[in-house]
Each structure stands twice: as structure tokens, then as C-alpha cells.
């Protein structure tokens, strides 16, 4: 496939996937953002010459752990909230007056709230398609925003604080143990015998 064709199909795929689903786009780009941000933090440690290699062996897994908490909490919470709300619109649990009127007119009210019911697959869906799509997009975007606020601003900081406090305690214990081990004082004779010169 030529580069031009590949670029054209990439544009078409983006248009088809996200054109009618801005909520999904927010979840996917948000997750990609967290992955890149964690990768940048890890790269910053790897390329930092001022950090000793032994410290890097601790800091890199620490940063990976931190990144995993951020990414998983963001993806799981945001996509769950978004999917639940999105499905609630598809099965008619959340509706506007036009959608409610459509369900009543087509005698579909007994199916409202059923997991396998999808308004988009009903016979006369074309009548409300435009209104339904823009309403669903709005619910998706607001649900994704609410989900990301919940994960990024409440759940992740609490989890991260717990994790960091645990880590700090372990590090402090380790430092205290090192302090308790007395230094071996080198005597002048030992120094001379080592062959080093002042």
C-alpha cells in the first residue's frame, strides 16, 4: 500500500470511528495521553545522568507502578461511566422528549431499560436519527468528562498517596537500617598497606 493510500485510509478510519462518537475519542486520547506522559517520565529517569544506576533500578519500577495506576484507573473508570450512560441512551433509560415520543409512538416503551434493546436498530430509527445522535454525543461527552474527573481527581490521587506513603516508609526504614551499621574506620596502617598514596 502506498503512503498516500495509507494516509487516506487512516483519515477515513478516524472519521468513521470518532465522527459519531466523541465520547469514545475522549476516552482513547485520554488513555493515550496518560501512556505517553508515563513514558516521558520513565524516559526522563533513564536519560538522567545525575541519577545513580542503583537508584534507577528503584525509580524506574516505581514510575512504572505510578503510571499503571494512572492509566488503569483512568481507562477503567472513564470507559465504564461512559459505556453505562451510552447504553442507557441506547436502551431509552436516558432520553429527551423527542426520543420518548418516538418510543411511545412505536409502542416500544415496554422495552425501555432492557440491556439487549437498541433504539438504533428499531424500524423507524431514521425519523429521529439526527436528534438522537446529537443527544447521545452530548451524554457521552459529559459522561466521559465526569468519569475522568472521578478517576483523575479523586480515585487516582487517593491511590497514589497510599502507594507513595507505603514506598516512603519502606525507603525510610531502609535508610535507618543503613545508619545503624557502623562505618569501618580505615586505620593508617591499612591505608598504607592498600598501596594508595596521599
Amino acid at each position: 500500500m502506498s503512503l498516500e493510500k495509507a494516509f487516506s485510509s487512516l483519515k477515513s478510519n478516524l472519521y468513521k470511528n470518532y465522527g459519531e462518537n466523541p465520547g469514545k475519542m475522549l476516552v482513547h486520547t485520554g488513555t493515550a495521553g496518560w501512556i505517553l506522559s508515563s513514558a516521558a517520565q520513565i524516559m526522563a529517569i533513564i536519560t538522567n545522568d545525575k541519577i545513580a544506576p542503583e537508584q534507577k533500578t528503584f525509580l524506574i519500577p516505581q514510575e512504572i507502578g505510578d503510571g499503571l495506576i494512572n492509566i488503569l484507573s483512568f481507562y477503567i473508570l472513564t470507559s465504564s461511566v461512559k459505556n453505562l450512560c451510552s447504553k442507557a441512551v441506547l436502551n431509552g433509560k436516558i432520553a429527551n422528549k423527542t426520543i420518548k415520543g418516538y418510543l411511545e409512538k412505536n409502542k416500544l416503551t415496554d422495552k425501555i431499560g432492557k440491556v439487549d434493546f437498541n433504539i438504533k436498530k428499531t424500524q423507524n430509527y431514521g425519523e429521529i436519527k439526527e436528534d438522537f445522535t446529537s443527544f447521545k454525543n452530548g451524554v457521552d461527552v459529559l459522561a466521559s468528562t465526569a468519569g475522568s474527573i472521578l478517576s483523575c481527581n479523586i480515585v487516582t490521587p487517593i491511590l497514589r498517596n497510599e502507594y507513595a506513603a507505603e514506598r516512603q516508609k519502606k525507603m525510610n526504614d531502609c535508610l535507618a537500617k543503613r545508619k545503624q551499621t557502623p562505618y569501618h574506620r580505615v586505620t593508617m596502617n591499612e591505608f598504607r598497606n592498600s598501596g594508595m598514596r596521599v
Binding site: N96, S134, F135, K136, N137, G138, V139, V141, L142
Partner: peptide, 10 residues
């Protein structure tokens, strides 16, 4: 809702 869907970008 409709305005949010249209106007809220990343």
C-alpha cells in the same frame, strides 16, 4: 447536552 456534544473537545 447537545451543545456539550458539539462544543466540548479534548
Amino acid at each position: 447536552y447537545k451543545t456539550a456534544g458539539r462544543e466540548i473537545s479534548s
